[in-house]
């Protein structure tokens, strides 16, 4: 399951941020490492919601700063 979540999350990040897949590692920070601005991060959260058919409250979204954060959070919500 988590493998599946991880590959889907990475695919979304590669598509939306236009970065190379090799850069999308667990510790990569959306803003500092992957060049996302405030609108990009909002879009990423919305894409995760669409992809996994769930809703991510703003207070949770504030704590999702890295690729690993996203995978851990989504895996938890889906289990």
């Amino acid at each position: 399951m988590s493998q599946d979540v991880e590959s889907k999350v990475k695919a979304i990040i590669v598509d939306k941020l236009g970065v190379d897949e090799s850069e999308v590692v667990a510790e990569a920070n959306f803003t500092n490492d992957l060049g996302a601005d405030s609108l990009d991060t909002v879009e990423l959260i919305m894409e995760f919601e669409k992809e996994f058919d769930l809703s991510i409250p703003d207070e949770d979204a504030e704590n999702i700063a890295t690729v690993g954060d996203a995978v851990t959070y989504l895996t938890g919500k889906l289990s």
């Binding site: 609108l39 909002v42 879009e43 919305m46 919601e49 669409k50 809703s55």
Partner: peptide
């Protein structure tokens, strides 16, 4: 398809 949360933050700009 997705309601208000389906509208991109890049829509307006």
């Amino acid at each position: 398809e997705h309601g208000p949360r389906g509208v991109s933050p890049f829509f307006i700009p």
